[in-house]
Design a protein around this nucleic acid. Structure first.
Lengths: 336, 336
DNA sequence: TTGAAAGCGCTACCAT
DNA sequence: ATGGTAGCGCTTTCAA
């Protein structure tokens, strides 16, 4: 647990307090609060008034204990502010709602405590967890107890339970092949992440280029529009004959297009640009952004289905039965 | 309650089951599960094994009942897919986390059940509610019981409890005055919402124009990029001398800029464009979008502060003490 | 190191 | 129409 102050809930009124105040028994209070039959209109009014007076709010724990509960799914994401995640969240939420589940979203970037504390706290509030969980498999028991967990990840890690592997290989290959097939000769990538080593997307780009016997060209940038813009500019400087650029994600691709525009290079006539993620957002720019799209609706549905059935005991807590792989598909819009 | 199937939780193992399986008492199970002292390593291992075997997951209700709980805030928004909401959610989540609260996000657009059912369900899961609540004040007791509620709304409604009023007046006035002051003569707006009647933003635009003695010009569009594009095109058709356009929101403003580009009208040289919302996203386009910005960080902080203190009893459940007003400020980027 | 009993706040059941 | 009792699953005394 974190040392962070948990809000101290002031001594709350309980059924008994209301009952005493209204001069009735606890059951009568229950009846009034829950619109049940077997209570006269007049006492109901009296009870409700007492409840309001005391600011009585039924404890959802006492209630959940006896009523059984609507299960809650924890969804862990990196940053709500990156449109990729809300797009996925929308699918997770709607699929979960269809199955009678609630969703509690945990935003790592905007949570003050450490990731580990965050997850431990989350695990205590929910019945299952799905999302971008980057915790060593060996720590799973410690953090999640016996909860069903589905991790969305680019590289399957040992010890994880449910897994949806986001395989960038086929998509990157398709993108490179498409660019090359449509006559592009100098195909580069703006990668993100620590500059020392290519990201997984970067690796796949490199592999695809090697397959075609093409010379790779890669620069690194911050994972922002500005980062993409700088990367794009660097690329043009390094190779003035550049005619195809793949960006780490859609945001960076927007930056790349900006850089090209500033240099007077026409997209896609002189240079094609392809993003990764396939967000709706890509339609905002002129030209509209082509992108390696993940079917986020499908990913959300798949993940919720998996974790939900793990919870129900229909699927094991781990193993090949709860591992899936998804990949990208090239979304042709205007920039390529 | 909705008729929607709630997930049936299969008879779950309890402490007693684990205790029986491991041949120990319930307290020993508790000790093992919670890493407490007073238990030998060997029995701990045995208990943990039994727990895993039975897929035992402690009930968060039983646990919450005795332990006291981390309070949870319900945040109601229209559509996660509209970047405005995640931007606000980020602030709500981080402020709430600072105060030791969890946040449960309810996305109206992606929830299959009706709004009313959604809110009733939410109210049973949380300790306070904040967000875009469009429920008649008279229904509040019915829906929310005695929960603290803070509604974000453009027009204060009678019977609401806490309120943060989003006042578009000052912002729209500032925008119109700025455009006029910088020599624009023909200032129009692309509004959204039902075409029969101006939206609140539309009304404020009209009022600001009237103040300056300017002729208003308003068209309606869907609340999307395409809607904005159609609106922009319609505006150019209606008034070829148009030199200033305000859009209902940033998304529509992007559409407007697209339309202008297609018509060969330079932004901002020939025609200025101003959006509403002030999203980071506005930096994606070329030129970057000027916008009437709401300080979403501030709104989130304010709202959480209010509702949190209402919960603690430091602030009344309703009345002027829990009403605030915020307004927009003109964010000058490149399109104006 | 382990276990028995009590009680958190609520509603279901059965009595009155 | 109303009230008494039991019990949901858990942890916290307290006793052995």
């Amino acid at each position: 647990m974190t040392a962070r102050a948990r809000a101290t809930v002031p001594r709350r009124a309980t059924v008994l307090d209301v009952a005493a105040a209204a001069g009735v028994s606890r059951q009568t209070v229950t009846r009034a609060m829950n619109d049940m039959s077997g209570i006269s209109a007049s006492t109901k009014v009296r009870v409700l008034a007492a409840a309001k007076e005391l600011k009585y709010r039924p404890s959802r724990f006492g209630r959940g204990l006896v009523l059984g509960h609507q299960p809650t799914l924890g969804f862990v994401l990196d940053d709500l502010t990156n449109p990729y995640y809300p797009a996925l969240a929308a699918s997770v939420v709607s699929t979960a709602a269809d199955r009678g589940w609630n969703v509690l979203i945990s935003d790592i970037a905007h949570s003050p405590q450490g990731v580990s504390d965050l997850l431990v706290g989350l695990a205590q509030q929910v019945d299952a967890v799905i999302g971008y969980i980057r915790v060593p498999g060996s720590d799973f028991d410690q953090v999640f107890g016996n909860l069903p967990v589905v991790a969305l990840e680019t590289k399957p890690e040992a010890g994880h339970r449910g897994v949806i592997e986001l395989d960038f290989g086929p998509g990157l290959r398709e993108a490179v092949q498409y660019l090359h097939g449509s006559g592009r000769q100098r195909i580069a990538m703006v990668d993100a992440g620590p500059p020392e080593v290519p990201s997984i997307r970067g690796e796949q780009y490199l592999a695809a280029m090697a397959e075609l016997g093409l010379d790779p060209l890669m620069v690194y940038g911050e994972q922002t529009v500005d980062g993409g813009q700088e990367g794009g500019a660097a690329l043009v400087d390094a190779a003035p004959d550049i005619d195809g650029i793949i960006a780490f994600n859609d945001h960076m691709a927007f930056g790349v297009m900006k850089a090209l525009r500033h240099r007077g290079i026409a997209v896609p006539a002189q240079c094609a640009v392809i993003g990764i993620d396939g967000l709706e957002l890509g339609r905002i720019s002129t030209p509209e952004l082509s992108s390696l799209a993940l079917d986020l609706t499908e990913v959300g549905r798949l993940g919720v289905d998996l974790v939900t059935r793990m919870h129900a005991g229909e699927l094991p807590a781990s193993g090949p039965e709860v591992q899936r792989t998804v990949h990208h598909t090239l979304l042709h819009r205007e920039s390529s």
